[in-house]
């Protein structure tokens, strides 16, 4: 592993001082960063261990939502009674991800900041614009089974690996950050980026900024929701395609709906215009199909991942049916009901 200096601040102000500079990495649960250090992909000269900062709480907000501390673990969050009762979509997505050991260590802030699992990003012997700007992209024209079908650029076709982030996108969470320029709140849709011409930037965080919390809004979709994750194994694998649906029915009609996709793009994939097609409609295959087509418009495979386009369409239909019926996907029994 590379060599680095180590700091363990105990308050936010100290953490931000230690975090100033170009080649600094904040370390929380370590489940992704320590691996990247071993692989020589992350090469900070200083590691700032933020795990002792007082950001571990999960608290009700004055607006009726829930604030998830950046350093609450994925396990603590998934099994929190308020999350389970009010935001079961988030709990389900968290439990669909990784393993018990990893969820016990991984934090909420770390989860949304994890890097892509693109094989070429990890393999320092191959070119990668995300790892080394200007090198080129070995995934384009390479083995592309896990790669993006939407929002790609000529520089990068990586996907974001988080399950949690897909649920947070559907819930319209907000990311609270602090940094040298003060505090700010970032809408979840604006937190992760498409690769464009700067694929090395996964998020809109500025240098030295730190996530302090993730806020869930009051509307929590406790009844009509699902997180449907399709992958190579039944457990402990990243999504090829995943779908988070959050829906509110009023009588026979859809009053509100959000659809977010994982495994298909550089960020959780939402298109409000696809959701607009369903609002006020009666649930049904025809309406679901129109929404799926709008959400997937322009989807294009890279060869090895062409299967993702029809797989995503079918997964969207099935997830909308699961949410409508109030029969969310079990994360233990993986049969798709």
């Amino acid at each position: 592993m590379i060599r680095f200096d180590y700091a363990r601040p105990t308050d936010l102000a100290e953490a931000l001082r230690e975090g100033a500079g170009e080649e600094v990495a904040y370390l929380a649960g370590g489940t992704n960063l320590v691996d990247l250090l071993k692989e020589n992909v992350a090469r900070p000269t200083r590691v700032v261990d933020i795990a002792r900062l007082p950001l571990t709480g999960i608290e009700d907000t004055a607006q009726g939502g829930l604030r998830l501390g950046a350093l609450a673990t994925n396990t603590e969050t998934a099994y929190d009674q308020r999350v389970q009762a009010r935001y079961p979509l988030l709990s389900s997505a968290l439990l669909a991800g990784a393993t018990a050991q990893l969820r016990n260590a991984a934090t909420n802030g770390g989860n949304i900041n994890q890097r892509t699992r693109c094989y070429y990003f990890y393999d320092v012997a191959t070119p990668c614009n995300k790892r080394e700007p200007g090198q080129g992209c070995a995934a384009i024209g390479g083995v592309s089974r896990i790669h993006a079908i939407l929002g790609t650029s000529h520089q990068c076709i990586a996907t974001h690996p988080s399950d949690m982030a897909v649920a947070l996108a559907a819930l319209k969470a907000e990311v609270r950050v602090t940094g040298p320029g003060g505090d700010r709140v970032i809408a979840f849709a604006d937190y992760h980026r498409l690769p464009g011409d700067e694929p090395w930037r996964d998020t809109t965080l500025e240098p030295g900024e730190l996530v302090t919390a993730i806020d869930l809004p009051p509307e929590s979709f406790p009844t009509n929701f699902t997180y449907l994750k399709l992958r190579e194994r039944l457990s402990y694998a990243f999504a090829l395609v995943s779908v988070a649906v959050a829906m509110r029915l009023e009588g026979e009609r859809i009053a509100e709906v959000r659809i977010a996709l994982g495994g298909v793009a550089h960020k959780p994939w939402r298109r409000p215009e696809a959701e607009d097609l369903l609002r006020g409609q009666e649930p049904g295959r025809e309406a679901f199909g129109a929404a799926a087509d709008a959400l997937l418009e322009g989807a294009r495979g890279q060869g090895g991942n062409d299967f993702k386009v029809p797989m995503a369409r079918k997964a969207i239909l099935r997830a909308l049916e699961q949410a409508t019926a109030g029969t969310p996907q079990s994360q233990t029994d993986k049969r798709i009901a």
């Binding site: 370390l27 261990d49 795990a51």
Partner: peptide
């Protein structure tokens, strides 16, 4: 998972924890 240990009673992968933390 072959490196799984209990840290403060909770199972984690010892390979992904820097000991100084």
């Amino acid at each position: 998972g072959s490196c799984t240990v209990l840290i403060d009673g909770t199972r984690m992968n010892a390979c992904l924890k820097l000991a100084v933390t």
